[in-house]
Every structure is written in C-alpha cells, then in structure tokens.
C-alpha cells in the first residue's frame, strides 16, 4: 500500500490504480513475420525484477489515463512517474 502521484490528478491512494505490468514492451511491428518463440517472448516472458522496474499503471478510479512508473519492487518506493510516450527520466 502506497501513494501514487498521478501525473494528471495528483497524489492518490494506490487502491485507485491498476498495475498494468512491465512498461516499454513494444508491440511487434510485423506480427505476421514473428516466430512462435518471438510471440512467446512478447506475450508471456517478463523481467519481473527485484529492484528498480519500469511499469505501466492506470488510474482506473480517477482519470482512467495510463502512465509510466519507475518503482523499486523490493521496497515499493516510487522513483519517478512520467507520461505515456515520454522517455524515462534519468534517475
């Protein structure tokens, strides 16, 4: 349980948000060209890092907008929050 500073609404309780998993996984540009291994990699394989991880979150019970978050999964400390499409800030 922690507070999240939504880039659109400000600081809110984590309960209002939904975690959307690992960030910056690009949808394959040529899906028809992909091998089964590459599909598995895109769909299922995750870094699942213990430490600083890049994630997507959605403010489901607020503005319903998506944004990115850099968070330390070993202590739930949020390092940075930035909007979709933006480059991650250097920490």
């Amino acid at each position: 349980m922690f507070l999240i500073n939504c880039p659109y609404c400000g600081e809110r309780d984590q309960q209002e948000f939904k975690a959307g998993g690992e960030a910056h996984i690009e949808r394959p540009k040529e899906p028809t060209e992909l091998s089964d291994d590459e599909w598995a990699e895109y769909l299922f394989m995750r870094k699942n890092i213990k430490g600083v991880q890049f994630e997507r979150w959605n403010h489901t019970h607020g503005c319903r907008k998506w944004f990115n978050m850099i968070r330390d999964t070993s202590n739930d400390e949020i390092k940075a929050i930035y909007k979709m499409g933006e480059k991650p800030p250097s920490q």
Binding site: Q15, K18, A19, G21, I49, E55, T73
Partner: peptide, 13 residues
C-alpha cells in the same frame, strides 16, 4: 496484490 512486489507485506485493503 495486483502489482509486482517482493516486499512480503501486502496491502491493507
């Protein structure tokens, strides 16, 4: 909890 975490805590709600 629905987010990745290694904290062995979990949320109150």
């Amino acid at each position: 909890d629905d987010y990745v975490s290694y904290t062995q805590k979990g949320s109150h709600q």
